[in-house]
Design a protein around this nucleic acid. Structure first.
Length: 264
DNA sequence: CCCCATGTTCGACA
DNA sequence: GTGTCGAACATGGG
């Protein structure tokens, strides 16, 4: 599930536990999600401290630990964060549970494509310090987008929009939604696009990110029927704009749904 | 049994 | 360095 809006939604689920005294930590230390994390260090470090504040960038979450430390979580394909009572008993897929006086903050992920990383010191992790410009940042402007498109002249637009180094937070459904709203064929390459199309793409990038933050990040509301979102998941869907059948193809290994003729 | 999945990474190759 | 492709990872649903 987790793309830009879903990640922000999950970030907020741990808010009740912010500033709360951490009492103990449960972790499935052998789970793949801890491949690059020192679980022993994490288990020793957290008790007695607290999660002071949280951030997201693209698909990653970052929790600042007070007085020192940083916890990074990537939700992968099936990861999620939940807040439960402090009496909660960890289930099979709850790889990390942080207990406070009142809450249990759980990270669970049955497919284990997610990642947890931890740094005990006070400087923010490298990935945070080197993060790319966010799409909703005003500095993500026409000039900035154009430079990215010109750097990858022959990469299909669908593939390009999913590059996290350049379009942080865009996943499969958002990429399809953006291209559909921009009336752009997902197989088209930057070298085939006019500057006018660049403009439209920039607008739709911003629009879909803003919509995701408004609808998904805020209470995970059901997206309206006029989005592509509701129609793209199975074969046999109908384009809300043209009323004609949607098509589903593979582009570089990823299922892509688009509206033929509408998207050129 | 088959195929599919809102993700990332790695290796092979042109 | 760009770009494509397939496999791998792990689990569940249809």
């Amino acid at each position: 599930m987790p793309e830009l809006g879903e990640v922000e939604y999950y970030r907020k689920t741990w808010n009740p536990g912010l500033a709360a005294h951490i009492t103990k930590v449960h972790l499935n230390s052998k789970a793949r999600v801890f491949n690059s994390c020192d679980t022993e260090e994490l288990k020793i470090h957290l008790p007695g401290k607290c999660l002071a504040e949280s951030f997201t960038h693209g698909k990653r979450l970052l929790f600042r630990i007070s007085p020192t430390g940083w916890l990074t979580i990537h939700l992968g394909m099936t990861g999620r964060l939940d807040c439960a009572s402090h009496a909660m008993v960890p289930g099979k897929h709850d790889h990390l549970v942080i207990y406070t006086d009142n809450e249990a903050l759980a990270f669970s992920d049955y497919r284990k494509f997610g990642r947890v990383d931890f740094k005990p010191h006070s400087e923010a992790p490298d990935w945070w310090q080197n993060r790319a410009r966010e799409i909703l940042d005003p500095a993500f402007d026409f000039k900035y987008l154009k430079a990215i498109l010109q750097r990858f002249p022959r990469t299909p637009m669908k593939t390009l929009l999913m590059k996290q180094d350049h379009f942080p937070g865009i996943g499969n459904w958002m990429a399809d939604e953006i291209l559909w709203r921009a009336k752009m064929d997902p197989r088209k390459r930057p070298q085939e696009l006019s500057p006018q199309k660049f403009r439209i793409l920039l607008n739709k990038l911003k629009e879909v990110c803003a919509d995701a933050m408004r609808v998904v990040a805020d209470g995970w509301k059901q997206p309206p029927e006029y989005w592509l979102f509701n129609h793209r998941w199975r074969n046999g869907g109908t384009c809300p704009r043209t009323g004609k059948p949607l098509e589903r193809i593979q582009i570089n290994g990823r299922t892509t749904c688009f509206s033929p003729n509408w998207q050129q």
